[in-house]
């Protein structure tokens, strides 16, 4: 038998965790609210979408870019055996990310490492900020 007692007699850690709650970075707005969790950042040329999808190959994922949105779809399958504990999510998931900027669809790149999906969405030239020179008379 393998027993996970961590919730019962790991009091010091529980206290630690209680105090950790106060120090949680407040930039993390809604962890675990939907699956998979994503981080979205942007700079002047690209939008970056990172997602935590452990245990999946990039080929098992369906990444669809439509006009105005990015869809990440997949299916996490359960293993066979006698389950003592099952906490890892199983089943079909889908996440839609709205993009309010035009994207150069041909140059989108996606890669997967250590269970982290990284998608780079380059903005089209029209969407990039331009410097307008003012001519003084």
């Amino acid at each position: 038998m393998v027993i996970d007692f961590s919730a019962f007699y790991d009091l010091p850690r529980q206290i630690d965790r209680f105090f950790d709650e106060f120090w949680k970075p407040n930039v993390i707005s809604q962890r675990r609210a939907s699956y998979p969790p994503v981080n979205i950042t942007e700079d002047q040329t690209n939008i970056y979408v990172d997602a935590e999808i452990p245990g999946m190959d990039i080929d098992d994922l369906e990444i669809i870019l439509t006009e105005g949105s990015l869809v990440i779809k997949g299916n996490r399958k359960a293993d066979n055996g006698n389950y003592y504990r099952q906490e890892r999510p199983v089943g079909v998931f889908q996440r839609i990310i709205n993009l309010n900027v035009p994207i150069d669809a041909d140059k989108v790149k996606a890669k997967m490492k250590n269970g982290l999906l990284e998608i780079v969405l380059p903005k089209t030239d029209e969407a990039k900020p331009k410097k307008i020179s003012i001519e003084a008379e």
Partner: peptide, 21 residues
């Protein structure tokens, strides 16, 4: 030099204990 638009996870530490028979 990036702007964070939306964050749901970040650096972290994972810890878990098990008792095995």
């Amino acid at each position: 030099n990036v702007n964070n638009i939306h964050l749901e996870f970040g650096d972290g530490e994972y810890v878990r204990n098990f008792t095995i028979s």
